[in-house]
């Protein structure tokens, strides 16, 4: 079941001088089982959009369909909790939500809130920790003593332990080093491919979108301007330039070379293929 937004608007502080329309008349379809990137400038409504998925924010107008639930403006939805278990939302800098004495307890906190027994919650927590690449030696340590990257893994495990079918991540790699970033993205790809999770990632990093995601949604002034597959979006840099986004290095390189008379077909999408295509053309001339 896909996720659908129908004429959704969201207004902060309505009826006060601070009124601010964060989303206006959003119509959107998010494919199930795919990894979708939500991109756009700061303040374009990305975070507001994704907070509708687990009903942290309720639409001011329109309706949101998530899994088997319909959340409509004006009606008070019941049992939000069960939805929050099915749609796991990881906030930016999630390491700041850790609070328990031990890593294991912290990760088990989510499942316990959803009524899972103590023993089962611990079991789920162990599994989730394994998924994020932290072995048993971490279980009894205090989450506050870990390094930044490890803390973030624990926080993400805390959401995975709830076993959600949709996982939403708001800038999950902000502040990580390049290696940490790639490892993190690989983890999400694995959750998507191996475990069939629908994944939504809010990000500014085009390299991540290009390398790891299936679909792209570009937000602008509270509206989705573009909703496309990654292949379509990065066919050349024209869409990026139009949206004032710096395209991934490979696309920039391809475009710069195209301008100088090189030709590439659509499937030149990694370094090896690009190098091959360049060498072929240069040798023909050389």
């Amino acid at each position: 079941m896909p996720i659908e937004f129908e004429h959704v608007s969201y207004i902060y502080s309505d009826g006060t001088p601070f009124r601010y329309v964060a989303l206006s008349d959003v119509n959107l379809n998010i494919e199930e089982g795919k990894m979708t990137a939500v991109i756009g400038r700061t303040g374009s409504g990305k975070s507001t959009l994704v907070q509708h998925l687990n009903a942290l924010l309720l639409p001011s107008e329109g309706k949101v369909k998530v899994l088997d639930r319909v959340i409509e403006a004006g009606s008070k939805p019941k049992q939000l909790k069960s939805l929050r278990g099915q749609v796991g939302l990881v906030f930016q800098f999630p390491e700041y939500q850790l609070f328990e004495e031990t890593v294991l307890k912290d990760v088990a906190f989510g499942p316990k809130n959803f009524g899972v027994s103590e023993a089962d919650a611990a079991e789920k927590a162990r599994k989730a920790l394994k998924l994020v690449g932290l072995d048993e030696s971490y279980e009894q340590r205090s989450p506050l003593e870990l390094s930044g990257g490890q803390k973030r893994r624990v926080a993400i495990a805390g959401i995975l332990a709830m076993d959600p079918s949709v996982i939403v991540l708001d800038e999950p790699t902000a502040g990580l080093d390049p290696q940490g970033t790639v490892d993190m993205m690989k983890l999400f790809r694995e959750l998507n491919k191996k475990h069939g999770k629908t994944i939504l990632i809010v990000t500014h990093d085009m390299e991540q979108v290009f390398t790891f995601c299936d679909n792209v949604i570009v937000m602008e002034n509270g509206k989705p301007r573009i909703s496309a597959t990654v292949g379509e979006f990065f066919k050349d840099s024209s869409l990026c330039r139009e949206m004032d986004i710096l395209p991934p290095a490979l696309i920039r390189m391809k475009d710069a070379l195209r301008e100088k008379g090189f030709r590439f077909d659509g499937n030149v999408n990694d370094m090896n293929a690009l190098a091959g295509a360049i060498v072929k053309q240069v040798k023909k001339h050389g």
């Binding site: 390049p178 290696q179 290095a249 390189m253 370094m271 190098a275 360049i278 060498v279 240069v282």
Partner: peptide, 20 residues
Amino acid sequence: IKLDLPFSVKLQKELVKKGL
């Protein structure tokens, strides 16, 4: 030490490997 090369340097190495 878990660091990467910039894209253009990587591509250049790849091209040199392929005989340019």
